[in-house]
Design a protein around this nucleic acid. Structure first.
Length: 810
RNA sequence: GCCAUGGUGGCGGAAUUGGUAGACGCGCACGACUCAAAAUCGUGUUCCGCAAGGAAUGUGGGUUCGAUUCCCACCCAUGGCACCA
């Protein structure tokens, strides 16, 4: 009596068996072919798991199951990135302690994750908010401190005067507080930094060896932003002053006609203070007025003004050493005080911003690069500004050289003359790790009565996060409230000693979690070297593209630093990386605040986990994502039921398939293999659907073929595959079986279909045997009725593509 | 503005060393089963046309016997960066 497939009952049965047999618990010491498959660990939000999580985790699991069937000892751990702002905000709103809400949320999420049927090794779970984890976050800080990679300095933070709190960049919208709308101000605060800039070159050069999406590598490249250029020193005429300008294009310096300094530049300060007086005294007043105006502008006002250039002449001139030309010195806010040297040399013929500025204030424009089309006319319109390529003109000894060659030549010359020095600049800035927040790992630092920082000795770790704290914003770090924290510090270090009240950025917690998974019961060291050597780097890391820069740069930096400290053997944490696409709902990212979060629970309840995860994979390529819609889930449900029916009811030992079917089976093995290994689960599923359709037409399957089909299905529908495997008498778990291989000889058939075109238009299909030669095939093609009909006039050309088509041109 | 990625039926999507565009699935239509409905199964389904045939992969051009695929220009969408010298 045929029984339809009942997912609820059967999925529960297999999950129980997997757990009993510890099928997913990797023996980190024994594994011979280590394969470390990792998905970015989730934040345990109150929204529970949504469809987006499933879209990320389930296909990743299918990929790792496939790796396991290829014979790898796969290790796929899971954990929680549990510190962070949402739990703290929730606490402010409801009074529920972040630790309580986090624990509740993680418990729920673990249950949900287990229902997915993923092969996570829960014995190795980590939770960054627990002392046994964050002691290592603090240990990392101590290492950074000991190796002089941690330092304290004043930095500006986004400050909301009404809410009395520091805001993250994402909480600032157009210069205003996201919650109350007040204007956000920049407030200086002494904070801890990690010197990621020391690693800028290595972070950049290391990208080459990584098998990451090119897009992601490019983003990191821009983020680090290495620029090679020169600091050129200009003398200010009739004074003892000099102004240093950074430029990456010294080759165009014969075309320099002005200098611009930022309003914050010391030279401007001297004019305002009356230390330097221009010949025309009234100019000093103008400078003063302009600087006041520029400094008062808010971010918002600057944006509104767009790109229109403003500025004033200072009354002073700089001398270009190359040409001896006097160049007027201007002040303008398009030059940034904090970048480069805070002064730029204006070459309006070959830089668009300089051009706009020169046009605005009638400064001469000189052409020193000939356009690639040979244009040598004066530059009058912005389209003529030649920025990228060309040949030098009007530049004495550089004339006739391509710009790259001229650049090297002129730099050597300038350095030789002592007018400047080569420098490399980076866009990357040091990592500010201090947060004036409660829900994070306390920075393990204490201050002596004189205010000097001292690291908390390792024996006092974990340096516990106090619990006697109010979460209400007061304008200070919440830990300032804790009596216990202050008493603890005085008791351990002495009277007058105070703890650091800031906590660490959660990106610190997530910068090394992949090492903490490799614990194997060991909690005594940060990471066991043998295991690290064996399992790292992560073979495949899967997560969202929003982490392309921050998390993925911080993790690389930390790994490199740990390597230099002698803690780990490898320098790069993630060998291969792929980003899943984003699932939106009505075009928007799913979030509780927008109220568009789709829960997977009802679908899983109704169709089972296998159907739901396959449906997500069938939607389209994994890297694409898409807008959520449940239309079509029925098709996958039907597929599962039909697969169950055919494989259990219509397979037998005494069946022999047709040659055509056997060939299809081998082509399917190839297609499924290729699809899964390139994360195109959608085409893997459609290939299996086609095979099933053919099997239905054939009526019966041999047992051998059925067992191949089940193995192909196993990574995609793990529960169903186990049940089928058992029903058909397979030994052990199907996920422990070998992945099927195909016979290349089966991929080609004896006959082939040749397409016949006349003038490029399809007119007929002919079946020919594989051994027919070109002349025979063309002759056969010409005999087709529908071909003859269109062969009017003489044949001018006959094209034959082997095994594919004939095209007759008349 | 710059950089990156993409644009294919009613819908999700498939197909690229240039060679039958629309696989697979959804939806829809018709039919079978049913008192009926659901479920299931079968047939059809890019558009225009009764048909023969023609048109069609964002738009316009180009290369080619042949272009979704290569080249040029443009439009649109998404993501990232943004006065970075």
């Amino acid at each position: 009596m045929f029984k339809p497939y009942n997912p609820t009952e059967i999925e529960a049965k297999w999950r129980k068996r997997w757990e009993e047999k510890k099928a997913y618990n990797a023996d980190l010491k024994k594994g011979k072919n280590p394969y470390y498959g990792l998905v970015m660990f989730p934040y345990p939000s109150g929204d529970k798991l949504h469809v987006g999580h499933w879209y990320n985790f389930a296909p990743a699991d299918s990929y790792f199951r496939y790796q396991r069937m290829l014979g790898n000892d796969t290790f796929t751990p899971m954990g929680f990135d549990a510190f962070g702002l949402p739990a703290e905000n929730y606490a402010i709103k409801t009074g529920i302690h972040p630790d309580a809400s986090t624990k509740k949320n993680t418990a729920t999420m673990i249950e949900q994750l287990k229902r997915m049927g993923c092969m996570y090794d829960w014995e190795k779970m980590v939770n960054t908010s627990q002392p046994e984890y964050y002691r290592w976050t603090q240990w990392l800080f101590l290492q950074m401190f000991a190796h002089k990679l941690a330092y304290k300095k004043e930095a500006l933070v986004n400050w909301c005067p009404k809410d009395q709190t520091v805001l993250a960049n994402e909480q600032v919208q157009n210069g205003h507080c996201e919650r109350c709308g007040s204007e956000v101000i920049q407030k200086p605060l002494a904070q801890w930094f990690w010197k990621i800039t020391d690693y800028a070159d290595r972070l950049l050069d290391g990208l080459e060896k990584l098998e990451w999406p090119e897009k992601t590598k490019l983003m990191q490249n821009h983020w680090i932003g290495r620029k090679k250029g020169i600091n050129l020193t200009y003398h200010v005429a009739e004074t003892q002053e000099t102004i240093v300008c950074f430029t990456t294009r010294p080759d165009t310096n014969f075309g320099a006609t002005f200098l611009v300094v930022a309003p914050e530049h010391p030279f401007v300060r001297k004019i305002m203070d009356g230390e330097l007086v221009p010949k025309d005294g009234s100019l000093a007043e103008h400078v003063k007025k302009y600087v006041e105006y520029a400094m008062s502008k808010t971010e918002l006002e600057r944006q509104e003004e767009g790109r229109k250039k403003t500025g004033v002449f200072t009354g002073f001139y700089a001398i270009n050493p190359l040409t001896n030309r006097s160049m007027p010195i201007w002040v303008s806010d398009f030059v940034l005080g904090g970048f480069g040297t805070g002064a730029v040399v204006g070459v309006p013929g070959h830089d668009k911003r300089d051009f706009e500025f020169a046009k605005e204030f009638n400064i001469p424009i000189v052409r020193v690069v000939q356009a690639s089309d040979g244009d040598l006319s004066p530059i009058e319109r912005i389209e003529q500004v030649q920025e990228d390529e060309g040949t030098m003109v009007n530049s004495e000894f550089l004339n006739g050289m391509p710009i790259m060659e001229a650049k090297e030549k002129v730099m050597d010359y300038i350095v030789g003359q002592g007018w400047g020095e080569r420098v490399v600049t980076y866009r990357l800035r040091d990592w500010l790790i201090s947060r004036q927040r409660y829900w994070g790992a306390p920075i393990p630092v204490v201050y002596d009565p004189e205010g000097n920082p001292h690291p908390v000795p390792e024996k006092h770790l974990p340096w516990l996060l106090p619990t006697d704290v109010e979460f209400k914003p007061t304008g200070k770090s919440p830990l300032t409230d804790s009596k216990e924290f202050i008493e603890r510090t005085e008791k351990l270090f002495g009277k007058g000693w105070t703890p650091e009240f800031d906590t660490m950025d959660t990106f610190v917690c997530s910068s090394f979690y992949y090492l903490r998974y490799l614990m194997e019961g060991n909690q005594k060291t940060f990471v066991e070297k043998k295991l690290e050597d064996k399992w790292m780097p992560v073979d495949m890391y899967i997560g969202g593209p929003e982490h392309a820069t921050m998390h993925l740069i911080y993790a690389r930096f930390v790994m490199m630093a740990l390597h230099d400290f002698g803690v780990v053997a490898h320098e790069e944490p993630f060998k291969r990386l792929i980003h899943q696409g984003l699932i939106t709902n009505q075009g928007a990212k799913m979030s509780k605040s927008k109220g568009n979060v789709v829960s997977p629970d009802a679908f899983v309840e109704r169709h089972g986990s296998d159907v739901f995860r396959m449906f997500l994979m069938f939607m389209g390529p994994f890297t694409d994502g898409g807008d959520w819609s449940d239309t079509g889930i029925k098709g996958v449900d039907r597929f599962v039921q039909r697969a169950w029916a055919i494989l259990t009811e219509k397979s037998g030992d005494d069946v022999t398939e047709s040659a055509g079917f056997e060939s299809l089976l081998h082509r399917t093995i190839k297609r499924v293999t290729d699809s899964i290994s390139s994360f195109h689960f959608n085409t893997a599923i459609s290939a299996l659907m086609e095979l099933l359709n053919a099997a239905e037409t054939a009526g019966q399957l041999s047992r051998e073929t059925a067992m191949i089909c089940i193995r192909l299905l196993a990574p995609l529908a793990p529960h169903l595959a186990e049940e089928l495997w058992e029903t058909l008498g397979g030994e052990g778990f199907v996920m422990d079986q070998e992945w099927p291989t195909y016979d290349p000889a089966q991929l080609v058939s004896d006959t082939m279909t040749i397409v016949v075109q006349v003038n490029g238009k399809l007119r007929a299909n002919i079946e020919v045997s594989r051994d027919m030669d070109e002349a025979e095939i063309i002759a056969k093609a010409k005999e087709e009725e529908n071909v003859k009909k269109f062969l009017t006039g003489t044949i001018r050309k006959e094209v034959y593509v082997k095994g594919r088509l004939v095209n007759l041109v008349v």
